[in-house]
Design a protein around this nucleic acid. Sequence first.
DNA 1: GACGATATAG
Length: 637
Amino acid sequence: MLLCRPNFFFWTSKQRLNFHLFSTVPNPRLPSPLSSLPPTPGITQIKQAHARTIVFGLANDGRITPHLLAFLAISSSSLPSDYALSIYNSIPHPSVFATNNMIRCFVKGDLPRHSISLYSHMCRSFEVAPNKHTLTFVLQACSNALAIREGAQVQTHVIKLGFVKDVFVRNALIHLYCTCCRVESAKQVFDEVPSSRDVVSWNSMIAGFVRHGQISDAQKLFVEMPEKDVISWGTIISGCVQNGELEKALDYFKELGEQKLRPNEAILVSLLAAAAQLGTLEYGKMIHSIADSLRFPMTASLGTALVDMYAKCGCIDESRFLFDRMPEKDKWSWNVMICGLATHGLGQEALALFEKFLTQGFHPINVTFIGVLTACSRAGLVSEGRHFFKLMTDTYGIEPEMEHYGCMVDLLSRAGFVYDAVEMINRMPAPPDPVLWASVLGSCQVHGFAELGEEIGNKLIQMDPTHNGHYVQLARIFARLRKWEDVSKVRRLMAERNSNKVAGWSLIEAEGRVHQFVAGDKEHERTTEIYKMLEIIGVRIAAAGYSANVTSVLHDIEEEEKENAIKEHSERLAIAFGLLVTKVGDCIRIIKNLRVCGDCHEVSKIISQVFEREIIVRDGSRFHHFKNGSCSCQDYW
DNA sequence: GACGATATAG
């Protein structure tokens, strides 16, 4: 039987692919243990083939087992390295081919240090000499392990063994230096032997520049490169997105379309991330329709990017609709959906989904608990929040990060457990972010813990003297205590230190464009109409019983704000513009960088009723859905 | 006998 398998051992996986294409029925006269494997088999298929080699008595055949390792290295499944190692160890005198593939298996199994050890063992034993493949794989391991010293040592081997002109090896070196923050060294490798450069060298170098924020160098190289492939386009587009050059990313995408090139999934995912970041729904929808029209399969990655985009653009229903219909979901799909529901204030739904996530056998990660704790915080579920925090650390062994503490401190202090929140901050292993204290300070102001607030306010001003908000909060607390001298002292300090507010902006999409407003903005082409609309709003909401939320207690400190800031806050301008471009029953979507102020929140509620519009606002930390005079956050934010 | 480069989620 064995004699009927001419040349089997020398088939490459590519040749085998052709074999499968041309003969739809496998030849029963060739019962090879590996012949039925597809080009990139899954782990189960490989194990079955392995079982067949054992059945055929070929388990120790030095010509078959290295191929098993090669299949494991390119397998479509994730890899248990100990299984590969047991096969490797069964080979009495491993060839360089076998060892190379074992090195690859360790890389794939996320054990790059093992790859490096095996390589150094190979060098020391002198049984077989490393070849160009060995060097490529071990350099890849060094990149994954961020092992720059070992990598540099391998570079000396590259010289010694005479592979300096091998383009694969050179590219592996470029990649290594780029991942280890040595862009200059990478550029040196890139420049040294221009004849040993191909499109991958250029792509790697561009990616290196992108990763280090040198986006203009990346763009320069992109323009210079002799030929571009779809990965070059993907690299530059995602690079622009990562560096906040979202318009530029869109320009490149247009150019790609003009050249009649088909984008790949990575490009669409990057662009969806850009839309999500900006909150530009129309733009996100456009990418979605491109994905549909090009018949991209709904993979977990693409689906997750869409779910995230819709959630971040305020369409939580659409986001959930897509999530429920995704044919394949991974842990990230669930995490994104849980966090999306939580930021939209749908705490109970988020927690229900978390339960489902667990019953599906997924293992929660740090991000999952950020969603879960945010959900508890938004829904005011204090005991549940405490329970999940404990579950995270005790059951799942996840070390709480600043964000987890942030959620807990927020949860406790909002609910009035201000001293518990302080205790939690004091128990933290790392120095707390000022944001945590600021959140407690806010609650002190709301819940009337004046002395504690005074203490925290002073502490915050010391920690972060340029932050305007701390002074304002502290002044409010003094005002509550009627310590007017202290109020003016704080205000003087604020002026002296020239502490500045982060410039607030609001944006709204309309007529195929993004319109951005800052407070008191007069730049927009429809400024006159907008300010007229503000007046109309003033009259109509007053008729509905609104009076400005500037209480007598605060009167002393917020005179200017009362006049300018409140009335002409960027979101008021955006809403006024939104009213101009929409009709009754429509939805106005606004994205803000800062949190909504109390007065704007109140006004938005009334506008939603008086003008019969739904207003969806994404602020610095959450979503507000204003409808029929009330908000989804139930005034709890 | 085989190698390399791009993406997202708080």
